[in-house]
């Protein structure tokens, strides 16, 4: 569903992402972990089509992001780590805006917007300007917007930032349910516990390079520690 082919992004002499090759299947939850400045957000932005790679390509459901960006983006629901939104719109208006952009028809919108606002506990404040929302509420609204068009792929950067424990639990359950239904999830996170709990495979990135990837057990095997948790695996790989 997602293929990163020899993907690189350079900022002058700095190689933020360096020749990453990765393939993620339908219905898979892929966790992307790494220290600060490792290149996680850059990779997410490359997959989301927010920037063009210096080298290599991103394929989304067989569509090349560089050649057909609009078609590729229709397949994705992007959730960035910082909830920047149009502050002068209400939540309902923001969802309607998203629906128009992604071509969700009116009937489907009526049905889905209500469901999503309910699911993310935003129904009571749906007609309130976003500028009065808390960080967590904005984050939940972005998630609702990303799910509105039933994307085949969800690309999410730090999903738990700003969420309360109830919200975190809800997101965990939601991602698992979506994956069961065949949605592919690419997720970068510092919350190793989350990655351990829900990811089918994990990739570790350091200084722009994908230094290891596989299931937790495969990663443990690589460093030859049986009883380690993901935190220990992470420290072993990243030093």
């Amino acid at each position: 569903m997602i293929q990163l082919i020899n993907l690189s992004k350079h900022y002058g002499r700095i190689k933020a992402v360096n020749h990453i090759n990765l393939s993620i299947s339908k219905g898979e939850i892929f966790g992307f972990i790494g220290p600060n400045g490792a290149g996680k957000t850059t990779t997410i932005q490359l997959i989301g089509g927010l920037m063009a790679p210096t080298e290599g390509s991103v394929m989304v459901d067989g569509i090349n992001m560089a050649l057909e960006p609009e078609n590729a983006k229709k397949k994705i629901g992007l959730i960035p780590d910082r909830p920047f939104l149009y502050e002068k719109l209400t939540a309902m208006e923001f969802l309607r805006f998203t629906a128009d952009i992604y071509g969700v028809n009116a009937t489907e919108f009526q049905e889905k917007s209500g469901q999503l606002l309910q699911m993310f506990s935003l129904m009571d404040r749906a007609h309130e300007l976003i500028e009065s929302y808390s960080h967590g509420m904005k984050q939940r609204l972005i998630m609702a917007g990303a799910l509105l068009h039933d994307p085949l792929i969800i690309v999410v950067d730090e999903p738990m930032v700003g969420l309360d424990p109830k919200g975190m639990n809800m997101v965990k359950t939601l991602f698992l349910k979506l994956a069961e239904k065949g949605t592919t999830i690419f997720m970068s996170t510092h919350t190793l516990r989350l990655a351990e709990d829900i990811c089918h495979r994990i990739g570790i990135i350091n200084q722009g390079e994908l230094i290891a990837s596989g299931t937790i057990n495969e990663l443990k095997e690589k460093i030859k520690i049986d009883q380690a948790d993901l935190e220990e695996v992470f420290f072993q790989f990243t030093g």
């Binding site: 089509g49 960006p69 983006k73 939104l85 149009y86 998203t98 952009i101 992604y102 071509g103």
Partner: peptide, 14 residues
């Protein structure tokens, strides 16, 4: 568009 410009960039619109 401010910091919400990512919505335009990630959306299916050129």
């Amino acid at each position: 568009e401010g910091n919400a410009f990512w919505i335009v960039k990630s959306g299916p619109i050129s």
